[in-house]
Amino acid sequence: MPRSMWRGAIQFGLVTVPVKLYLATEARGGLSFNLLHKTCMNRIQMKVHCPEHGEIARSETVRGFEYSKGQYIVLDESDFDAVPLKTVRSIDIELFVDAQRGTQVTSFVKQAYYLEPEPIGRKAFYLLKSVLADEGLSAIAKIVLKDREALASINPYSTTMLLSTLYWPDEIRSAGELDLPEEEFDFKPAERTMAQQLVQAMKGEFKPEDYKDEYREALVAVLEAKVAGKPAELPKASEAPTKIADLMSVLEASVAAVREARSTGGAKIASTKSSGAKTATAKSAGSKSAKVADISSGAKRTARKAEPARAAKRKTA
């Protein structure tokens, strides 16, 4: 585990629990690239440029606040020092809310941190965690991080607790700005049943490890191939969808979904997965020939007697 980024104490009532904070996530995000000059391949430099005096040193810059169009006031370090800074090293729990439907503000998370209790506070820490878990509650707290006060929620997570800093309510945009319908929709019982069945068929356990950033992986592959001097193998463009075959793919996929939902018979659906599990619109001609008539049995088709001439004719059908 890397170094803790904050030390302090959770406080509520008369209880003080000393804890450390660790970043719970890391941004892997996009791969970073440098801008090069096309002809000489040198990295270009970002110079500080004044329209009147040309290039200037960064030390010659000051921070200005535009209070009206083209009007600035300049703040120097002494002005920033004059702002009363909170240096309290505490996480002040303000209240506890229902974890399921707490204030909607808890949906807008800025950053998640792991909490680690100092040895002296372990018992109190886990007592708090256990009560939160049993009662289904979240703690709403304030914390000073990097000289700024932040709103946060604290929730039990795995073997510890998670502190999530939240956006302040005035930082959250209103959904009222969206073009949303005012009327309420009437759903026919059949539509509702259908949707429920679909949802039921897709119900499963969320396994985050099953998901990955495929774009990043593909980009890394391209980069590695380029470094190795090979032309990058790009995925082939998908063919135009063949409609009736798509329908069969949907069937196969939906059988697979039902089975997966039940988590049984995994061995038997190998053939279904190979042909139907991909999207119906992005499949290659190869997958089509791999299809079998019986979804479950994996029965091989008998060898075909078609001579080449007729095979060619078939493609035009």
Binding site: M248, L251, A293, I295
Partner: peptide
């Protein structure tokens, strides 16, 4: 059905029905 699968290749307009045993 086994023979049907032997004589028909799936095309855009004509396929062997899929099913479960």
């Amino acid at each position: 059905r086994r023979r049907l699968a032997g004589v028909l290749t799936d095309t855009d307009s004509c396929v062997v029905s899929r099913g479960l045993r």
